[in-house]
């Protein structure tokens, strides 16, 4: 059984989705049995590619759309959405 889940999240971190969270995001995405894609309104990119995630230039306040397909779709969206909405204090 496969389901598709789609939901938008707003980037909370002051620094935006920079390299470290993007790496975390890609790692996390790889743990679910689901294909997750990300978009900021235009092109959909793979959630497992740090290069693609960084190319979105998702700064604080950017709305990111997540779309997941597969048995773990709902869980993947929830986990990845939480990461996007996680505030991060500047190092």
């Amino acid at each position: 059984m496969s389901e598709t889940v789609e939901k938008a999240f707003v980037v909370a971190s002051e620094l935006g989705l920079h390299a470290r969270p993007a790496g975390e995001f890609a790692n996390l995405a790889g743990r679910f049995d689901a294909e997750v894609e990300v978009s900021r309104g235009g092109e959909w990119v793979s959630s497992r590619s740090v290069l693609s995630l960084l190319s979105l230039a998702a700064s604080q306040g950017t709305s990111l759309q997540l779309r997941a397909e597969g048995p773990d779709a709902a869980a993947a969206i929830e986990a990845l959405g939480t990461l996007i909405e996680r505030p991060e204090l500047p190092a």
Binding site: L15, H18, A19, V50, L53, S55
Partner: peptide, 14 residues
């Protein structure tokens, strides 16, 4: 340089 940093990373990644 949060904004500039992110933009540079995005451009390089593209």
């Amino acid at each position: 340089s949060g904004g500039q940093h992110l933009k540079a990373l995005a451009r390089i990644s593209r």
